[in-house]
Simulated scan of single mutants.
Amino acid sequence: MLLQVRDNGPGITPELVPRIFERFIRGDAARTRTEGSTGLGLSIVSAVVAAHHGKVDVTSRPGETVFSIWLPRRQSAPGPSAPAAPYDPRVPV
């Protein structure tokens, strides 16, 4: 499965692109930790995607930045699955 997020802003500087998924990397020098930016957002995205055996990438140029996330399709469990037990709200006494 492929998920893409596109932005039409100023783009990411070429020097920053290879490091954009590292912790504490911030692209906008005007934003500081006191204003709420820690530089952790994209590193968290990268970690979550990796935990699901996926891949995340970015391409950027002025006027267009594209974040692409590839996730593998979910594999079904081998063998037949047991039917779910019906819900019974009664408590045996």
Rank of each mutant, 00 (worst) to 15 (best):
E35C: 12
V49M: 01
P14Q: 15
E35L: 13
V58K: 11
F24C: 08
D88G: 00
S68H: 06
A50N: 10
E35N: 13
R6A: 10
A50C: 03
R90D: 04
G54I: 04
F21A: 02
R61V: 12
D88K: 01
P89S: 05
H52T: 02
T34M: 11
R74T: 07
G63I: 09
A84N: 05
T38Q: 09
R33M: 09
E35F: 14
Q4C: 14
G63T: 07
V58R: 12
T34W: 10
K55T: 05
P62A: 06
L16G: 01
A47D: 15
I20W: 14
R19D: 05
A47R: 12
Q75P: 04
A84K: 14
P80A: 07
P78M: 00
T34S: 13
P83W: 06
P83F: 07
A29R: 15
I25L: 11
G9V: 06
T38P: 00
G41D: 05
P14V: 08
A30H: 14
V48D: 00
A77N: 08
L42W: 09
D7E: 06
Q4H: 11
Y87M: 04
T13F: 06
I25F: 08
S46L: 02
S68Q: 12
I69Q: 14
H53N: 07
S76H: 07
V48C: 08
R73F: 10
I44D: 13
H52C: 12
R61D: 01
G11W: 00
S37A: 14
P80M: 06
L16W: 02
T32S: 14
P86K: 09
S68I: 08
R33K: 10
D57W: 14
A50I: 01
H53A: 08
G9M: 08
L3Q: 04
T38I: 03
R74M: 08
E64Y: 04
W70E: 11
P72G: 04
P83Q: 04
Q75R: 13
L40G: 03
V5S: 13
P10M: 13
S37V: 14
D7M: 06
V56N: 02
S76D: 07
T38K: 10
L42K: 11
A30P: 00
V5E: 07
D57S: 15
E35H: 15
V5I: 15
P89I: 03
E64I: 10
G79I: 03
T65H: 13
R6I: 01
Y87D: 05
P89R: 03
D28E: 10
R26F: 00
V5Q: 07
G11M: 00
G79A: 02
H53P: 00
L42Q: 07
A47N: 10
S46H: 15
R26W: 00
T13Y: 06
I69W: 15
T34D: 11
S37E: 15
R73Y: 12
I25N: 01
G36A: 12
V56E: 02
P86Y: 09
V48W: 12
G11S: 00
G27Y: 05
D28S: 12
P83Y: 05
G39F: 13
V66P: 01
E22R: 03
I20C: 04
